[in-house]
Design a protein around this nucleic acid. Structure first.
Length: 277
DNA sequence: CTTACATCCTGATTGC
DNA sequence: TGCAATCAGGATGTAA
């Protein structure tokens, strides 16, 4: 579910409410996530203050006062919600609320993940640089190093579809299934085209389309397609602005042609047959 | 190295 | 309406 814009929205919201707070108590009620939650996670974070929140690709990074950090990934269905002082214990969902951090202002951060594809890992002080989750990630799509020359180099010789290429976290980090479709629509490139056959002009358009879409989505606090909620429990508003994703059969907002859906690399993909070549 | 595919898991939606 | 099949915003390991 959550791609870069959703995680960045989460980071910004929590930066206002959770940074500076001390984790008084933590509890893990379900350790079986994609990667098993360490037994000593709770003990390792209790008493530490949340110093800073960072993001790399789709990972939220919670830096703690002793130099350690938590690396959090929401998988497909995860969420990290900040629950207020008035939060009632009865609202705790024992099925999917897996990890809870009680903060010193009597609020709590709760990690909920029905499908359990996410992960939370405590990284020892100074260990972020060597974190395996982050090691192979490509450049941030909002950064200067994600440019046409770079993407052209990555596309060279690749038989994979261009959509798969831009969803490959080693190529560019943070783009998932929704935004890949949206970026390619804006760039006028069909998702099924082989990466190596994309012209340089088209590569330039793909790169140029990326930041505006991601920034707009962040501005809307992300996309709620089915179930995503931000840390305040509110749906993201970008769903209203999707041009192709999830709109199979509906008219293109630019040319009125019916949006098509195809499977590319086992993922649903959407495009306009007229606007995208 | 690249690509194709199954797999982890539960819930919502679709189709009969 | 009920129930089973299908699909879901992600990432990884394995095999070819």
């Amino acid at each position: 579910m959550p791609e870069l814009p959703e995680v960045e929205s989460l980071r910004r919201i929590l930066a206002r409410s959770a940074v500076g707070r001390t984790i008084e108590r933590a509890r893990v009620t379900e350790r079986r996530l994609r990667q098993k939650v360490a037994r000593d996670l709770a003990a390792g974070v209790e008493g530490r203050r949340i110093l800073r929140l960072g993001r790399r690709a789709k990972y939220l990074i919670i830096e703690l006062s002793d130099g350690a950090a938590m690396v959090v990934h929401l998988g497909m269905s995860g969420s990290l919600t900040h629950r207020g002082k008035d939060f009632d214990d009865a609202e705790f969902d024992p099925r999917h609320d897996h990890v809870e951090f009680a903060l010193d202002d009597r609020t709590r951060l709760v990690y909920n993940d029905p499908r359990r594809f996410g992960l939370i890992r405590l990284v020892a002080p100074g260990g972020l640089g060597a974190a395996p989750e982050l090691a192979a990630l490509g450049p941030e799509p909002l950064g200067a190093s994600f440019n046409a020359e770079y993407l052209a180099r990555m596309a060279r010789g690749r038989r994979a579809a261009i959509k798969n290429l831009i969803m490959d976290q080693r190529v560019v980090a943070g783009i998932g299934n929704i935004y890949a479709s949206e970026i390619l629509f804006r760039a006028g490139v069909r998702p099924t085209r082989r990466a190596a056959k994309i012209t340089h002009k088209e590569i330039e358009r793909i790169v140029a389309a990326t930041a505006p879409i991601l920034r707009a989505a962040i501005g809307s606090r992300g996309t709620t397609f089915r179930s995503y909620r931000d840390s305040d429990g509110r749906p993201g508003r970008f769903a209203e602005r999707l041009m192709v994703y999830g709109r199979a059969g509906k008219p293109c907002q630019v040319c009125k042609s019916a949006i098509r859906s195809v499977t590319v690399g086992q993922r649903a993909s959407f495009y306009c047959p007229r606007c995208q070549r």
